[in-house]
């Protein structure tokens, strides 16, 4: 008797990833919300053997291949809440996790000295944070554009933007440091971002 993986899961699953994307998304959701082992066993049965054949081709070694499979599936189990079905399918998400693990494993094995890890290149399993109040504007302004116009802001606004965006300080910290009211910091931030936005519109 096999423990953990229900007997009806043990047969081969020959459907294409696209055909079972919706079903697999549902399983990821129940794993995230209920830590559901049954859902995980469905994901596991489908993806683990396929990952193994990918891993064998990539790593050329059974033990390393199984390590890659285990690390990938373990991330799926523990970080299922980071899967976002609006951004892509379960197979794409799981592929990117496996690709990242493979990248870091090979980097370690080949003793490569480059100081670049998979998170730097593909932050698949990182939660992105941003101040919700300024995030929408951030998205509209590309980084390079901001740089171009930054110098045109009044000195006082530059100072506030720099403290918040470069040094990562909170608005309160900036207020304390510059000995100005919090409201002033807020209005300078808002004015500066608005001004950048206007300059960008003019430029377009």
């Amino acid at each position: 008797m096999l423990i953990g993986i229900p007997a009806n899961q043990q047969r081969n699953e020959t459907r294409q990833p696209k055909e079972c994307a919706v079903e697999m998304s549902g399983y990821l959701d129940t794993i995230a919300k209920q830590r559901c082992k049954l859902s995980f066993s469905k994901i596991f049965s489908y993806f683990a053997p396929r990952l193994r054949s990918y891993a064998l081709k990539q790593m050329g070694n059974e033990a390393l291949a199984m390590e890659l499979v285990q690390d990938t599936m373990s991330n799926v189990w523990q970080k299922a809440h980071l899967f976002n079905s609006e951004k892509g399918s379960p197979s794409t998400w799981i592929f990117t996790i496996a690709r990242n693990i493979r990248f870091d494993m090979l980097r370690k094995l080949q003793n490569r000295k480059e100081d670049v890890c998979s998170d730097d290149l593909w932050p698949v399993l990182c939660e992105q944070t941003a101040d919700p109040k300024v995030a929408p504007l951030d998205e509209q302004i590309t980084l390079e554009q901001v740089g171009q116009y930054f110098n045109e802001l009044p000195a006082k606004q530059q100072k506030v933007i720099e403290a918040i965006y470069i040094h990562g300080k909170s608005q309160q910290e900036v207020a304390d440091e510059l000995e100005i009211p919090l409201g002033t910091v807020k209005s300078r931030t808002r004015l500066a971002l608005q001004r950048l936005k206007d300059m960008l519109k003019e430029y377009d």
Partner: peptide, 23 residues
């Protein structure tokens, strides 16, 4: 492998990436 993975019950807190601009 399945047993080993699912023994870990809790969700793992993930690292948070700063998305602030750098100059």
């Amino acid at each position: 492998m399945f047993e080993c993975i699912t023994r870990e019950q809790s969700l793992v807190k993930t690292s948070i990436v700063e998305t602030r601009n750098q100059f």
